[in-house]
Computed example of a mutant assay.
Amino acid sequence: MNVTVTSTAATSNSTVCVKIGESAISDLLMSVYILAFIFGLIFNVLTLGPIWQQVRRQNVLGIFLLNLSLSDMLFLFTMPLWINYYRQDHHWGLGVISCSVAGFFYYSNMYISIYLLCCISVDRCLVVTYPLRSKTHRTSRYAWAQCATVYVVVIAMHIMVLVNDNLTDAHDGANNNDRCYETYPMEKPVALFNLLRGGIGFLLPLLVLAVSYWRVLATVGQSPGLSAQAKRKVRLLSFGHCPV
């Protein structure tokens, strides 16, 4: 993506022009998306069988992983659209609605995956720090309820964005640019919304993950009744390497 910014000022008026043209970065992004689509589809299909076996046993971690895999699959189905977008050197050419729908699944999958990983990390933390108390509450209904909450909240937020958006933010059709989610310079409300989304969607989950893993490592390290090998197994379990 070749971005050129020029500005001219006359008295109190200024004009900013951003041009996204043909470049090797478009080919690189297209190659990355092609590889991600191929390997993502293969690995998700291969892991569905073992994950489903865990779900049938009402395994909590298996339920989280199944929903995580389904979320990834939704995104994978939109990847051919993005591959075509970069093949056309950042020209969408498929209309405003398709751009917004593709962006909806892109961002929804991103935040659903992030918060499902948070659910997994908190679940691992509770298993290690409160093993007896958490055992009575960790049921399949408990896991399905958490996954459903994540899906509903994230999807509802992005539907509100689409309903209140006039689609010009997602689809930049000015001067026949025909770009999708690459409107520059950003309007102030859009930039503020992106900052807020970054804080809630990345910084908050990062804090949850950091605290959860810190609690796991601290609890395991301070347990006098565990041998070094047992502590290692508990650490692996807490990070999701073993089903419970």
Rank of each mutant, 00 (worst) to 15 (best):
152 V>H: 01
208 V>P: 13
228 A>N: 12
173 G>T: 10
130 Y>A: 11
169 D>V: 08
137 H>G: 13
119 C>F: 05
187 E>D: 05
223 S>P: 02
181 Y>V: 09
199 G>L: 10
208 V>Y: 04
195 L>C: 13
196 L>A: 15
211 V>Y: 07
129 T>A: 09
204 L>W: 00
143 A>Q: 05
153 V>T: 10
190 V>L: 04
230 A>L: 13
137 H>R: 11
120 I>H: 02
133 R>E: 15
148 A>R: 06
233 K>T: 15
191 A>N: 11
169 D>S: 13
214 W>L: 14
162 L>Y: 01
197 R>I: 13
155 I>E: 03
147 C>D: 07
123 D>C: 12
132 L>C: 09
170 A>R: 01
132 L>E: 14
162 L>V: 15
165 D>M: 08
170 A>I: 13
153 V>N: 03
216 V>M: 14
216 V>N: 05
164 N>C: 15
192 L>A: 15
203 L>T: 09
234 V>R: 01
141 R>C: 13
233 K>P: 01
157 M>W: 00
177 N>G: 15
227 S>P: 02
132 L>F: 03
141 R>N: 15
234 V>D: 01
119 C>M: 08
162 L>I: 11
202 F>N: 12
137 H>D: 12
130 Y>E: 12
192 L>Q: 11
225 G>A: 10
136 T>A: 14
127 V>A: 11
198 G>F: 12
173 G>Y: 04
183 T>R: 13
123 D>F: 10
211 V>G: 13
155 I>G: 01
214 W>E: 14
212 S>Q: 09
155 I>V: 12
146 Q>C: 07
168 T>Y: 02
135 K>C: 13
186 M>S: 08
192 L>D: 15
185 P>V: 03
197 R>A: 14
154 V>T: 11
208 V>N: 07
215 R>H: 11
196 L>W: 07
122 V>F: 07
153 V>Q: 03
134 S>V: 06
189 P>M: 06
229 Q>L: 11
220 V>R: 00
176 N>I: 02
134 S>L: 04
229 Q>I: 02
145 A>P: 03
167 L>Q: 04
152 V>T: 11
154 V>M: 04
183 T>M: 09
133 R>V: 12
157 M>D: 07
170 A>L: 08
120 I>M: 15
178 D>A: 09
180 C>R: 01
224 P>G: 13
120 I>P: 05
171 H>I: 03
193 F>R: 11
170 A>Y: 05
150 V>H: 00
194 N>H: 08
156 A>F: 06
162 L>Q: 07
198 G>K: 00
205 P>W: 04
148 A>W: 01
143 A>L: 10
156 A>T: 06
230 A>H: 09
141 R>P: 05
131 P>N: 10
145 A>E: 04
196 L>P: 04
171 H>K: 00
184 Y>F: 15
126 L>T: 08
188 K>H: 11
234 V>I: 08
194 N>T: 12
121 S>D: 08
184 Y>G: 01
